[in-house]
Amino acid sequence: MDTTDLKLKQCFLAVDDHDKALYFYVEVLGLEIRNDVSYAGMRWLTVGSPLQPDVEVVLEPPGASPDISEADRDALARLLAKGLLRGVIFTTENCDALHARVREAGVEVLQEPMDQPYGVRDCAFRDPAGNLLRFMERSA
């Protein structure tokens, strides 16, 4: 089987408030809206970088699957509120400038920009829902 044609299309982040998430990802980070559709009582919201037109971040409620139990959905919502669900890592050409912009928006800072021994400068924040977001700049 030839797998050279595989590419990432979507990744998923749980959010508890689509409007807060939309503001953060579009107005603060500068991503663009790809889809914002209501369907069957749900909201399909995707954002992405203009530099990566084929990759989308889906912002969905915790436990959005129709097959999940109410107890599991509640457990995921509690984990999200504690900031215990995984996040994503973005690359940037200027970690310090991005850090300043995100910090000015009042987002929770987890790590100030710092040089890492594995060849990147990075920083970390929590989005408004509590997801971990890291921003890394490759060292010269």
Rank of each mutant, 00 (worst) to 15 (best):
residue 63 G to K: 05
residue 63 G to E: 00
residue 65 S to V: 13
residue 65 S to Q: 08
residue 67 D to I: 03
residue 67 D to C: 04
residue 67 D to R: 08
residue 68 I to P: 04
residue 69 S to F: 13
residue 70 E to Q: 15
residue 70 E to V: 15
residue 71 A to R: 14
residue 71 A to H: 14
residue 71 A to V: 14
residue 72 D to H: 13
residue 72 D to S: 15
residue 75 A to I: 12
residue 77 A to H: 11
residue 77 A to W: 12
residue 77 A to N: 06
residue 78 R to H: 14
residue 79 L to N: 11
residue 79 L to H: 12
residue 79 L to Y: 14
residue 80 L to R: 04
residue 81 A to M: 03
residue 81 A to R: 13
residue 81 A to G: 13
residue 82 K to M: 11
residue 83 G to S: 09
residue 83 G to Y: 02
residue 84 L to I: 01
residue 86 R to V: 05
residue 86 R to G: 11
residue 88 V to N: 05
residue 88 V to F: 00
residue 90 F to S: 09
residue 90 F to H: 05
residue 92 T to S: 11
residue 93 E to R: 06
residue 96 D to Y: 04
residue 96 D to T: 04
residue 96 D to L: 03
residue 97 A to S: 08
residue 98 L to N: 03
residue 98 L to P: 00
residue 98 L to D: 04
residue 102 V to C: 06
residue 103 R to T: 11
residue 104 E to M: 07
residue 105 A to C: 12
residue 106 G to F: 06
residue 109 V to Y: 07
residue 109 V to W: 10
residue 110 L to S: 08
residue 110 L to G: 09
residue 110 L to W: 11
residue 111 Q to M: 09
residue 112 E to W: 10
residue 113 P to T: 02
residue 113 P to A: 05
residue 118 Y to L: 08
residue 118 Y to T: 01
residue 119 G to T: 05
residue 120 V to C: 09
residue 120 V to G: 01
residue 120 V to Y: 01
residue 121 R to F: 05
residue 121 R to A: 03
residue 122 D to A: 07
residue 124 A to C: 14
residue 124 A to R: 09
residue 125 F to M: 01
residue 126 R to P: 10
residue 126 R to K: 13
residue 127 D to H: 03
residue 127 D to G: 06
residue 127 D to V: 09
residue 128 P to M: 03
residue 129 A to S: 15
residue 129 A to N: 00
residue 131 N to A: 01
residue 133 L to S: 04
residue 133 L to H: 02
residue 133 L to E: 01
residue 134 R to Y: 10
